[in-house]
Amino acid sequence: MGIRFREVSYHYPQNHLQFHQAIEKISFQVSAKGEFIALVGHTGSGKSTLAQHMNALIFPTEGSVEIFGHSVTRKRNRKIRYNDLRKHVGLVFQFPEYQLFEETVEKDIIFGPLNYKVPLDEAKTIALKTLAQVGLDESYLNRNPFNLSGGEKKRVSIAGILALDPDILVLDEPTSGLDPEGKRVLMDLFQSIQFETDKTIVIITHDMDLVYQYTSRVLVMNQGKLVFDGTPEKLFRTAPLTEYQLSMPETIKVLQAINERLGLSIDIYQKTAEAAIQAIKEAVRQ
C-alpha cells in the first residue's frame, strides 16, 4: 500500500496559462505509515506537479501512479472513484484562501467529511478533534475563517484535510509566509501528528533547516527530475547541493564559517540551533 510512482512523466499542454515544470520519468515509493518526507527543489523544479500526482488531481502523461492499490494512468478510469483515492491521500495547498469558504470554521472543516457521507454529528466530533490536533481550541469553531490570522487560517485549512483522516498527508509549502517561530510551531505540530497517528507526512519546503531537523527522508527535484532520494544526513554530507540548486541549512553554514575563521573543528552537522550553540560552548570551553 501507499503510493508508488512508476516512470511517471507529465507535460503541461502547450498553451497552458501558468508556468510549470513538466516532470520526467519519476519512480519512487511512499509507504502509508510512519514516514516524514521532505520534497525539496528549486522554484519551478516540478515539486507541486509531483505533489498533485499523489492524490490524482492530475493524471500522468506517461507511466502510472499506484495509489493504495489503484493504478492512475493517463486515461480516466471509470471504475476508479478518484474521490475515494483522495480520502487516502490528503493534499493541503499552499494558500488557505483557496480552500476556506464557509462562514464558520466548524462548517469548513466538516465540508470534507460530509462529502464522504460521514453523518453530521460524527463529522462535528471529528471537527473538534482535528481542531485540537492543529493546536486550536474549541472557541474557534464558531469563528469566521476569514477573520483569522494567516497562521490560524493555515491551521484551519490543515484541519480541513486532517478531518478526512488520510493515511498520507501532503502539504505544499505549509511554512511559507510564517515567521521562524511560527514555522517551528507548525513543524512541531506535524511531528506530533505523525507521532500520534503514525500517518506518513510529505512536506514541500524550501527551508533546509526544517528539512534537516525534522524529516527522515528527502526527495530532491531538479528541472523535472528526481535527483536524490535518501536521508537528510546523506543529502547534506555527501550530495552535490549546488548542482541541485539547494543550499546548506543555516546551522551548518554558521558552524562551517566559525570553523574556517577560527580554525576550530566543531562537528558542523548539528540539527538544531540549540545543539549548535551547545557544540560552540563546548569548543569554547576546550
Binding site: Q52, N55, R86, L91, F93, Q99, F111, N115, L164
Partner: peptide, 8 residues
C-alpha cells in the same frame, strides 16, 4: 484542485 482534495 483544493476542493477536490476534500472530496468535491
Amino acid at each position: 484542485a483544493a476542493q477536490a482534495s476534500r472530496g468535491a
